[in-house]
């Protein structure tokens, strides 16, 4: 289900209808200016995962979905890692400070690491 969505995430900077191009460029500028570097690091990682996920999805649709469990675990690892990283981004984002009173950025990273490790454990268990 994240397929269409991830595609959308990467689409605004490249393929844009003319009437919204202004908005997009503004979005881009605003993003470049306002986002802290650490968040940019996260976003870079997110972009990489999206790329990987999309590749796998395309391969699945175009070539083969066999073995299905391998696809699920590969694709699932992309999705899982993506949402975990996105969660981390939300938690460390200074703008969201008020929402996450109980979660300090350090705690957020520890949570993220734990979640990722559990995720990768299941992924590799399911892969073969």
């Amino acid at each position: 289900m994240a397929g269409p969505k991830t595609a959308k995430l990467s689409s605004p900077p490249t393929t844009t209808p003319p009437e919204t191009s202004v908005a997009v460029s503004m979005l881009w500028e605003s993003y470049m200016q306002q986002t802290p570097n650490r968040l940019k690091l996260i976003d870079a990682f997110l972009a990489f995962i999206v790329l990987s996920g999309v590749t796998q999805f395309v391969y699945c649709v175009l070539v083969t979905n066999f073995p299905f469990n391998a696809f699920l675990s590969g694709f699932g690892s992309s999705i899982g890692q993506f949402v975990l990283t996105a969660s981390l981004r939300a938690q460390v984002n200074p703008q969201n400070r008020s929402e996450f009173k109980d979660v300090s950025p350090e705690r957020a990273f520890a949570d993220f690491a734990l979640g990722s490790i559990v995720l990768h454990f299941f992924v590799f268990n399911f892969l073969g």
Binding site: N69, G76, S77, V83, N96, F100, L119, F122, N125
Partner: peptide
Amino acid sequence: FSSRLYVAYSTWYAIGTLASMQ
């Protein structure tokens, strides 16, 4: 909708679904 909901649900869903398939 809040980021908390996003974090909680995404984490649960992504790991839980993959895990349940085991």
